[in-house]
Design a protein around this nucleic acid. Structure first.
Lengths: 139, 139
DNA sequence: AACTAAACAGTAACTATTGCTAATTGAAAA
DNA sequence: TTTTCAATTAGCAATAGTTACTGTTTAGTT
């Protein structure tokens, strides 16, 4: 008899809904929204619900199968410094801090060289544990 | 008599609400949310409304006084490629494309060197006109 | 002081996302 | 193969961030 452990990984099931969503995402590079994925999925599974799409997107992200493109949360943050500068986002506490390193214009040049388009500006964010949360986690 | 022109810039007024919001934003580096700004503003102007906060944030952003940190829209986009790679966001049509350039691990090293924290990964996005919109704008 | 369009407060509406519940189902065990 | 059961689902209600609307106020000009 095994004692319940917080290390125990929840068993994942491969459902046709999840499979469909993953196939849709893998077959495009257009970085679609949940709503678009939902519309596509309904072409294959007409009864799939939007909630299922969101739940599977979360699960797939958690398992490292896909990426979600936002700033760690769905609402906007505002920055009183309009000069371009880089940010560090703590994945634990959600804090957003400025990173004290110079902006690198050569990144934009490289992007233009590979045909990305006409670059006006760029954004760079680092994700990880801020010094405070890092200390807390260590024990 | 002057013909109405789409080039005419709307006259901006400096209201105490706008001034307060800008001061709040300029006095912090914590990248606050609209709601936090609203709460702070109410300490000075108890009757200010949340709508006013949002309206002024938009205006201030439009005038280049502040920055908004999101992916160009409030909802998430998903990416079927879980490998880190860079993105190009078209400010005109909103399309998100992959940028065909290698990921630069040294950026993370630099961020750690300046004390940002423990970096797990980073994200780099370029903003500008995609080749298609660029062609359209040119005439 | 008078004027007027910009901005306001208050509130309703909208939209992306999450939570809830009873029913269904994938996959492991029998 | 059948049984079993927790993971997952559909459908829908609820949240939450943001935007739109309306009548009133006000900054800045005349």
């Amino acid at each position: 008899m095994e004692r319940e452990s917080h290390l125990k990984r929840a068993a994942r099931r491969m459902t046709k809904q999840k499979k469909t969503i993953l196939e849709i995402l893998r077959s495009t590079t257009s970085h679609p929204t949940a709503d678009w994925i939902y519309a596509e999925a309904r072409k294959v599974l007409p009864d799939i619900s939007l909630g299922t799409v969101y739940r599977n997107l979360h699960v797939l992200k958690e398992d490292g199968e896909i990426m979600e493109l936002n700033y760690g949360s769905t609402y906007s943050r505002y920055d009183g410094n309009p000069q371009n500068h880089y940010h560090f986002v703590c994945v634990n506490c959600g804090a957003v801090r400025d990173v004290d390193m110079p902006v690198l214009p050569e990144l934009e040049k490289r992007a233009e060289e590979v045909g990305a388009g006409e670059v006006f500006y760029h954004r760079l964010e680092f994700y990880g544990l801020c010094p405070h949360c890092r200390k807390e986690k260590r024990m």
